[in-house]
């Protein structure tokens, strides 16, 4: 079985290597080929040749769609080296052209949502904040820092999310995230605007203790406040001539 896969794998690898030059003009047919070649070599071993999924390796793509594929590729979550680990944001492994091709190809397996057109500039910050705190903060924290959510999963930080990725995540519900189907496109614009504002405020910066809340603040109070003060009391409270100096007559 593996030997059978090896032949197209090697052939496609060669084809894949030669495609790295990134030629600008491709026919639709070549684009199709690029998509299917990439899928066959990079994705099929876990997601199945027809996108049906492989037991204990990867889920089916028949319920996904273009937005889902676009999301995982552009955030570097796929390709995933180890299927036992939660996919996290990472370096993007494909060129723009390859992503477009894969989205077209693999995105066609399922009838999930299409890539949304998100316009953060048109978003209402106040409504975005209300929606964020009602729906998102429980997992992603009010600062956008992300948190452990149980079951060994984590809601990731939102510090690097783009508006499109935000919209895709809301509509697709990647990983352990539920789908927020009742968000209108205005709602998505609003939430995207709010999250971009959080990023602009640098709410997870060191001087905000990573946005981790009162636990980090308390730790900082001890390390940056009490410890220096204890050191200062040692300086202040230890007599210059030592505690065991002879007792003198009061001047």
């Amino acid at each position: 079985m593996k030997a059978l896969l090896a032949i197209p794998a090697v052939a496609a690898a060669v084809a894949g290597l030669t495609s790295f030059g990134g030629s600008s003009q491709r026919t639709a047919r070549q684009q199709d080929d690029l998509g299917s070649d990439l899928y066959a070599t990079q994705c099929a071993s876990c997601h199945g040749v027809e996108g049906e999924g492989v037991e204990d390796r990867g889920p089916t793509l028949l319920t996904e769609g273009r937005a889902a594929v676009n999301f995982v590729l552009r955030t570097g979550r796929m390709p995933l080296a180890n299927p036992d680990v939660q996919p996290n944001r990472g370096p993007v492994r494909y060129s723009e052209e390859e992503i477009v091709a894969l989205v077209d190809y693999a995105g066609a397996f399922g009838d999930g949502p299409d890539i949304p057109d998100v316009n953060a500039d048109a978003g209402d910050l106040a409504n975005g904040g209300l929606l964020y705190r009602l729906n998102c903060a429980a997992c992603h924290v009010t600062s956008g820092a992300g948190a452990a959510i149980g079951g060994g999963r984590e809601a990731p930080p939102l510090t690097k999310s783009t508006p499109t990725q935000i919209g895709e995540a809301i509509l697709v519900g990647p990983g352990a995230m539920p789908v927020f189907d009742t968000f209108s496109s205005e709602d998505i614009n609003d939430v995207a605007a709010y999250i971009l504002d959080l990023q602009a405020q640098e709410t997870t910066a060191p001087d905000d203790f990573g946005g981790a809340g009162p636990v980090a603040e308390g730790l900082a109070a001890w390390l940056l406040g009490l410890l220096p003060l204890i050191a200062l009391t040692r300086w202040i409270g230890t007599p210059h001539e030592g505690r065991d100096a002879p007792i003198e007559e009061a001047p």
């Binding site: 904040g129 209300l130 705190r133 009602l134 903060a137 429980a138 997992c139 992603h140 924290v141 009010t142 600062s143 820092a145 948190a147 959510i149 809601a155 959080l198 709410t203 001087d207 905000d208 203790f209 946005g211 981790a212 809340g213 009162p214 636990v215 603040e217 308390g218 730790l219 900082a220 109070a221 001890w222």
Partner: peptide
């Protein structure tokens, strides 16, 4: 910065946040 209340927002029914701890 500590206790950035503008990020928590006002207490609204139904809202919640993780890292939901009191002061240390």
């Amino acid at each position: 910065h500590v206790n950035s209340v503008w990020l928590y927002g006002p207490y609204d029914a139904g809202a919640a946040t993780s890292f939901s701890q009191p002061d240390w």
